[in-house]
C-alpha cells in the first residue's frame, strides 16, 4: 500500500481528528460501568490510523456484521431473518471502509455513504414508526460502536498505546459520522413529509368553485402569505384553463387583513388572468378593510372590485349576456 512515510507525518503532526461527540468513553455491553479504552503495549508497523481502521473493517467485516445483527437496531428492523440483518450490516461496514479509504472519516457528505443512505433511512424510519424518538434511534445507532471498538482493541492489543488510541479515535469519528448521516437522512425524510403535507394543506385550503358556465370562484379564508398566494394564483389560473372560464372571482370575505403584500398578490393574479384572456374580479372587501387600505395608501388600481360574491357573480353574468329574471315579476332583469 502506498502509504508509509507520509503516514507517519500525519501521525506525528497531530492531525488526527478528534471525535466531535465527546470523549472516548462508552459502556460495555449491559454493564453500567464506564470503562477507559484499554491500554496495551508492544509495537507493529505504522499506517495512518484511518487506513488502519479501513483495513481492520475490511478484515473483520463478517464478525462486525454478525455482532451488529444482535444489536436492537438491526434485530428490530430485520425481523424476518438474521442473514438479512448480517447482509445489511456488511453493507454498512463496506460503506465505512470506503469512507475511511477516502480519508473522509469526519465528512457526512462523503461519497462512501451514498450507497447506505437509503438503507439507513429505512432503518430509522422503521424505528420511528415503532414509536422511538429520534434521540432513541440515535442511541441505538450509538450502540453499534462498542462491539466494533472491542474488536479493534482486541486486534490492536499488541500495538503501542498511542497508535491504538489514534485508531480508536478514528473509529469513533467514523461511527459518529455514520450516526450523523443516519439522523440527517431521517430528518430530511421528515422534512420532505412536512413539505408534502404543507403543499397538500395549501391545496385543500384553496377550493375552486364553478359558479356558472365560464365563471369560477375561489373563496379565500385565512391569512394570505407569500406561499399561499402563489398556490391561490396557480390554482385559479389552472381552473381558468380547465373550466374554460372567462371570469374568475377572488372572494376575500374571509381574509382578515389586507396589507400591501396581499394587495400586490391580488394585482398580480388579476394581471396574470388578463394575460390569459380571462377577467378577474375581487369581491368581499369589507368596509373596515377598505378603510384600512385607503389609510395605508394601497391602490388596487386596475383591479375590478365588487362588494360581495353575489354582486361579482351578477356582474359576470351580465357580461356573459345571461339575464336573470324573477318568474313572479315576469322578466325584470338583474341589475
Amino acid at each position: 500500500m502506498p502509504h508509509g512515510s507520509g503516514a507517519s507525518l500525519e501521525w506525528s503532526s497531530g492531525r488526527v481528528t478528534a471525535p466531535f461527540h465527546g470523549p472516548v468513553r462508552y459502556r460495555y455491553g449491559n454493564d453500567d460501568e464506564e470503562t477507559q479504552v484499554p491500554e496495551h503495549e508492544a509495537g507493529g508497523p505504522l499506517g495512518t490510523p484511518t487506513l488502519e481502521v479501513r483495513d481492520f473493517l475490511r478484515r473483520r467485516r463478517e464478525q462486525i456484521a454478525q455482532r451488529w445483527a444482535d444489536e436492537p437496531l438491526f434485530r428490530a428492523v430485520f425481523t424476518l431473518s438474521r442473514d438479512e440483518a448480517v447482509e445489511a450490516g456488511k453493507a454498512v461496514v463496506d460503506a465505512l471502509a470506503q469512507v475511511a479509504d477516502a480519508r473522509r472519516a469526519e465528512d457526512s457528505d462523503a461519497a462512501g455513504f451514498t450507497g447506505v443512505r437509503e438503507q439507513l433511512a429505512r432503518m430509522s424510519t422503521s424505528r420511528s414508526r415503532a414509536g422511538l424518538s429520534l434521540a432513541q434511534v440515535s442511541n441505538e445507532l450509538a450502540a453499534l460502536w462498542p462491539p466494533v471498538d472491542n474488536l479493534l482493541a482486541a486486534e490492536l492489543a499488541e500495538r503501542p498505546v498511542e497508535e491504538l488510541r489514534a485508531c480508536t479515535t478514528t473509529l469513533s469519528t467514523l461511527m459518529g459520522t455514520l450516526r450523523v448521516v443516519a439522523v440527517q437522512t431521517a430528518l430530511s425524510e421528515g422534512q420532505a413529509l412536512i413539505d408534502r403535507q404543507r403543499l397538500q394543506l395549501l391545496e385543500v385550503a384553496t377550493p375552486v368553485i364553478r359558479l356558472w358556465d365560464g365563471i369560477v370562484a375561489v373563496p379565500l379564508i385565512g391569512t394570505l402569505d407569500s406561499a399561499r398566494s402563489q398556490v391561490v394564483m396557480e390554482t385559479l389560473l389552472n381552473a381558468v384553463v380547465d373550466q374554460h372560464a372567462r371570469f374568475a372571482i377572488l372572494d376575500i370575505t374571509g381574509v382578515p387583513t389586507v396589507d400591501s403584500l396581499v394587495a400586490q398578490h391580488l394585482m398580480k393574479t388579476v394581471a396574470a388572468a388578463r394575460l390569459m384572456g380571462a377577467e378577474c374580479v375581487v369581491s368581499g372587501i369589507r368596509p373596515a378593510i377598505a378603510q384600512t387600505m385607503v389609510h395605508l395608501g394601497l391602490d388596487l388600481g386596475s383591479v375590478l372590485t365588487r362588494a360581495s360574491l353575489a354582486d361579482a357573480l351578477g356582474y359576470c353574468l351580465h357580461e356573459l349576456g345571461v339575464a336573470v329574471s324573477s318568474p313572479a315579476a315576469g322578466g325584470a332583469g338583474h341589475r
Binding site: 389552472n238 394581471a271 388572468a273 390569459m276 384572456g277
Partner: peptide, 30 residues
C-alpha cells in the same frame, strides 16, 4: 394573443411585463 399558459402568465407578471395594450383571449376560438 390567445392561449397563454398559466405558468407563462405568472412569469410575465413577475417579470414586470403585463403588456397592458395587448388584447388577450383564452383560445383561438374566443
Amino acid at each position: 394573443v390567445a392561449g397563454m399558459r398559466p405558468a407563462v402568465a405568472i412569469t410575465l407578471v413577475e417579470l414586470g411585463l403585463t403588456l397592458p395594450g395587448l388584447r388577450t383571449a383564452l383560445d383561438t376560438q374566443a
